[in-house]
Amino acid sequence: MTATIVVADDDATIRRLMGVFLRTLGYRGVVVEDGIQALAAVAEEVPDLVISDVHMPNLGGLELTRRLREDPRLARVPILLFSASVSQGEDSVWQGAGADGFIAKPPTLAVLREKLSRLLEKRQP
């Protein structure tokens, strides 16, 4: 079964890139512009994984992570935070927010492939 991954990023180019990346890696991507839209997407359908940019209007990645963690339905969904700010890549930041990993921008296909498959495997019972 094809895994569904929600991607939230406010940059249009990055949204398009991530769409193609996920398709190339064999996943179904649901691409949204901010945290609010991400919440709407996961409410509709529980995804297999969430990738979220840290800095977004309306609702950013750190706050989105907290909200997702509060929802028992979504507690087991792995979350990857995503940022071009090096400071956000410090373990304490994404771990503190409750995320499962961090990808620095720009990401490579190889890194994305490795991180996604590891998180999705771990999730399997």
Partner: peptide, 13 residues
């Protein structure tokens, strides 16, 4: 880095 993400990502693809 944001701009480079597009350049690097699409060219890698």
């Amino acid at each position: 880095r944001t701009a480079l993400t597009g350049i690097q990502g699409f060219s890698e693809l």
